[in-house]
Design a protein around this nucleic acid. Structure first.
Length: 199
DNA sequence: GGTATGATTGACT
DNA sequence: GTCAATCATACCA
């Protein structure tokens, strides 16, 4: 499908996967595997941010911070949150709009010991359950802003098999466009940053 | 120039 | 449940 790049026989998600509607990409990323330098796990929670969405950093047009959102799709957009944490996004593009998927939580599968060392704790359920936590566990910083996602240290492997069951709900921590159900999670996952409101 | 605000987390009552 | 940490960006003068 979107197996554009072959690395050791492993199909990686590349620019063609991300050059589509950001909500569709956010849904399809749940179940994919994100590795940075071989360390990471299965994406279990994402959020979509579109340029026509008042909650998006791209809403008011390009700035120094959000420049990556207006560059090519399939790149990382990394920003500082609350002056303390980093947040990792995947840049998407459809009809020239700046948009991105925020990666909110992983189920750790690879490099558990490295993640434990970086996070300073053992519980796998707390290693990557939150946007600031997973960037710390994976060693993501501003240095990765604008980096290609189909090139080392990044590797993103698509979900294989039937599409996993998703849950959806309002996005976390925003004060605008709170009605949009653009947060997506892997149904039944115990690695979410927060529970989804019951339907 | 100054000031308010977060796409968060961890500690604490 | 409440609250502080900490700083780049956004917005106003």
């Amino acid at each position: 499908m979107f197996a554009g790049t072959q690395t050791g026989g492993t199909p990686l998600l590349d620019e063609s996967f991300f050059a589509r509607d950001v909500v569709a990409v956010a849904r399809e990323l749940v179940g994919a595997t994100l590795l940075v330098g071989g360390i990471g796990g299965v994406i279990v929670e994402t959020e979509a941010y579109d340029q026509e969405d008042p909650a998006s950093h791209s809403f008011s047009g390009p700035t120094r911070r959000n420049a990556a959102m207006f560059g090519p799709p399939g790149r990382a957009y990394v920003y500082r949150s609350y002056g303390i944490h980093w947040c990792l996004n995947f840049v998407c593009r459809e009809s020239g709009r700046g948009s991105a998927v925020l990666v909110r939580a992983l189920e750790p599968t690879d490099g558990l010991e490295a993640m434990r060392a970086r996070r300073g704790l053992d519980d796998p359920r707390a290693l990557c359950a939150g946007p600031g936590r997973l960037t710390q566990a994976l060693g993501i910083t501003m240095a990765h802003d604008g980096a290609r996602l189909d090139t080392p240290p990044f590797r993103i492997l698509p979900h294989s098999g039937p599409a996993p069951a998703l849950v959806e709900g309002p996005r976390i921590g925003i004060s605008k466009a709170m009605d949009l159900p653009w947060r997506f999670g892997l149904a039944g996952s115990r690695y979410l940053s927060r529970p989804f409101p019951r339907a």
